[in-house]
């Protein structure tokens, strides 16, 4: 393989810019997903009537449709009823719509892993529901939820690659552009892979480190 390094150097800034966009969308999308996930999981945990039903419908829809289709609907469909969002906003909202359900499931499994007797003993100490959640349930749930949440973070970052489908100039988009314009396929693809590795590898390593720490720290009882 003869790589054209001049070309790679020349278009490096394109990739950097695209990587920034990818990271930005992923960052805000994941932040929103976590927020949605916490709200949904808490509602489901406390079995709050009605809202809980609505949330389980949302979770089913979100988990059983592809992000790309969700984005097409948000970006091309919704403007027809007057909801016009920029591609970036669509990407972030779409990612949060998808990620919210995944986060919710991970967080909920953590919440539900906390034994009922823990909650009762908190209650018998006169602790309110809110205080029990904050001091007793949540910290213990975290240890169980974090590996799933980390896996979701990685999953959601990889999912951002589909935003090129609604014409956002992310890493995929730039790569496709360069291949189309100059036919420098190998160089463009190598840079694509390298950039994704730069973004994802550290996160993946941190995630498995956290997971291992949690496993060894296992609270026991």
């Amino acid at each position: 393989m003869n790589l054209n390094f001049d070309f790679m150097q020349k278009y490096l800034p394109w990739y950097l810019e695209a990587a920034v966009l990818t990271v930005k969308i992923a960052f805000f999308g994941i932040l929103l997903s976590l927020l949605v996930g916490v709200v949904c999981s808490v509602v489901q945990y406390y079995r709050i009537p009605v809202i809980r039903r609505i949330i389980s419908v949302y979770i089913e829809i979100s988990r059983n449709t592809p992000l790309l289709v969700q984005l097409f609907f948000l970006y091309f469909g919704l403007p027809k009823i007057g909801i016009v969002w920029s591609a970036e906003v669509c990407a972030i909202v779409g990612l949060a719509f998808l990620g919210g359900s995944y986060m919710s499931e991970s967080i909920r499994s953590g919440l539900e892993s906390v034994e009922k007797s823990q909650i009762e003993s908190a209650a018998s100490l006169g602790m309110s529901k809110l205080l029990t959640m904050k001091e007793v349930i949540f910290p213990q749930a975290l240890a169980v939820s974090v590996p799933g949440v980390c896996a979701n973070v990685i999953f959601l970052i990889t999912e951002t690659s589909v935003v090129s489908g609604i014409a956002l100039a992310d890493l995929m988009y730039v790569t496709k552009d360069l291949i189309g314009l100059y036919y420098v396929t190998d160089e463009a693809l190598i840079m694509l892979v390298v950039f994704y590795l730069i973004i994802l590898l550290p996160i993946s390593i941190i995630a498995s480190f956290i997971e291992r720490r949690l496993r060894y720290a296992g609270f026991g009882n």
Binding site: S117, S121, N221
Partner: peptide
């Protein structure tokens, strides 16, 4: 919650907070 402060209870399974 107010009232429970006056009644202490200890369970079979200890239920200390592990964290």
């Amino acid at each position: 919650a107010q009232l429970r402060q006056k009644i202490g209870m200890v369970f079979q399974s200890y239920d200390l907070f592990p964290h």
